[in-house]
Design a protein around this nucleic acid. Structure first.
Lengths: 331, 331
DNA sequence: CTGAAAGCGCTAACAC
DNA sequence: GTGTTAGCGCTTTCAG
């Protein structure tokens, strides 16, 4: 920096001003500094700046599963909004493992990011609150008391799925759930309640939002004495894998069995999948979450808020009325 | 840190040693320090440490397109290998835009990451070399003279696709390419050369690796006077979208038209897609790339290396011999 | 606009 | 093992 200053023939302080894009620098000197900087290959040191400024102008985003494109869209929204407000965003993937998620958060806290956004976290409340104590934290897709939260109304989403299947006339309905995955409990809750409200009892098979679990759970369904005529899967990724497994067993979707997913990710809309699913406004969720963080940073909001966005049923081709005669899967 | 030291009743230097996990500290004092730290909610400041150490123990990974799960697997490999060697990894998504990719790299350089890994970059050579001057840089999936590179043998991959289609008896073959996308040129080159070696002339339609472009390009194919009987698409994401578009026009894949993709991502292996494609060893690519960076860091290798991994044809259900009578798409 | 000086939180080198 | 002393590269303040 000293070098740049001397080459440009100005003071160090002036260089600092220019690098930060201050308006109170004459055009002449500004360009002189910029020129000198590029000649010398000078690049401001973010660590030093962060140290001195006591802030990093960076948001840290932890993505639970990089394979789920749902998160890509949310991250997209975060990125847009954050950039518009002068923040850069850094990502950290958790590779689906809770430990990694912990490590990712810890790493961001040590970096002194200005806010942490958690996508699809599976971490427990204590851990989340711990993070929230250190820095504005917003959780996207999961519930978390005392913390800023942006969620889709997952309970309502589950209900939408149930109502749709019930309206089609299904009475033997199953659910492949998302375990401790974000929003899984609410989706299951809303779904089960709506089904039971009809005096029916849904079969619930465990899952965890991954494609592997979707296929495995479908396998369990096939082992049942009586195969359900419809199944609601906790997310698209698992739903598509489940369909895959069902068709592999010789069943036709939706003729033999109807399937509903959740998320309305790109894969669901491919026409030869045409998955009936529940849409979440992904980009909007990212933007809203970012604004949550900004509010804490700028305005100084202290109380936790919860933003609940509306889900929407998207009917495609994987749902139909139940078959008149129940099929037996041929292995 | 001073506070921790005084609470633990030791010196600042000792705290520093403990936080870095030095072995030369008595167990008693170590636990005293750790206790004091957690009581005070102390967390080392990564920026300060990076400043003092002049290194961040961090690898920066730039992912060109977060929606392409191909990169998720590569990143997975990077993550494993980097962590095994004591480095953390930070991700930055480029959201498919070149400017963003530039910004992402620049951001990492300012952060003084110890190495930059570029996944599927579309940036020009000068920009890449610029980065490589500042820090060990390895490019994954693209060619780049004078820079460490890990690629699949894309030319060979294109050839595999061509040979497969030719063996099936196709003579009217098209290619939806990847534009300036990573590896696109080589894939096209290998493919076109192999087709022309048979005295045939392939139709090449532009694309850019996205699903949108795949659908659009398929649309162009449909507008041709004579629809080709087979098409090789530059990556799976676009291939699936292309199939979607073709089937939407009333064509059957592979009965009316065969489709080959590239990458062998999870979506390709779903049975109701069953995309014939060319496999790249994704995780291995990530690991090899990480080792490239580590070599520069540890051993001090100076010369650029290129690792070429072998592609492999994966035959599924989207390819078949050409139809005996040429279909006309019904709009 | 300049120049000087202090400090951000930590590591590192050296005596003790 | 321990305490001390310099910085790391930048921002900030303040008088000029």
């Amino acid at each position: 920096m000293d070098d740049v200053a001397s080459v440009a023939g100005v003071s160090r302080a002036l260089v600092s001003l220019v690098m930060r894009g201050s308006p109170k620098v004459s055009e002449r000197r500004r360009s002189a500094v910029l020129l000198a900087a590029s000649e010398l290959g000078y690049r401001p040191n973010a660590a030093a700046r962060a140290l001195a400024e006591r802030r990093s102008n960076t948001f840290g985003v932890v993505i639970n599963d990089l394979h789920n494109t749902f998160f890509a869209d949310v991250a997209d929204g975060i990125h847009d909004e954050a950039r518009a407000h002068g923040y850069r965003v850094l990502l950290n993937a958790a590779w689906r493992r809770d430990v990694d998620e912990q490590v990712a958060i810890e790493s961001f806290l040590e970096h002194r990011v200005d806010a942490v956004l958690l996508l699809g976290t599976r971490l427990g409340l204590p851990t989340l609150q711990e993070a929230a104590k250190a820095v504005p934290t917003v959780v996207i897709g999961s519930e978390a008391a005392g913390i800023d939260v942006v969620v889709n109304d997952d309970e309502r989403g589950g209900e939408l799925a149930a109502d749709h299947l019930i309206e089609l006339g299904h009475t033997d309905i199953a659910h492949i759930d998302g375990g401790i995955g974000a929003g899984a409990t609410s989706r299951r809750g809303g779904f089960v309640a709506a089904v039971e409200a009809q005096g029916l009892r849904p079969t619930v098979v465990p899952g965890d939002f991954t494609d592997e679990s979707g296929a495995a759970a479908a396998g369990q369904l096939l082992d049942l004495d009586q195969l359900p005529t419809a199944v609601f899967v906790a997310n698209d990724l698992a739903a598509v894998a489940a369909i895959d497994r069902l068709e592999g067993a010789g069943l036709r979707v939706p003729d033999d069995i109807s399937v509903v997913g959740y998320d309305n990710t790109a894969i669901a809309s491919l026409s030869h999948i045409g998955l009936t699913t529940v849409n979440q406004p992904r980009q909007a969720m990212g933007r809203v979450a970012t604004r949550c963080a900004l509010e804490r940073l700028d305005g100084g909001r202290r109380a936790a808020v919860t933003h609940v966005l509306e889900p929407e049923l998207v009917i495609r081709q994987t749902t139909a009325p139940p078959p008149t005669r129940r099929p037996r899967p041929r292995p």
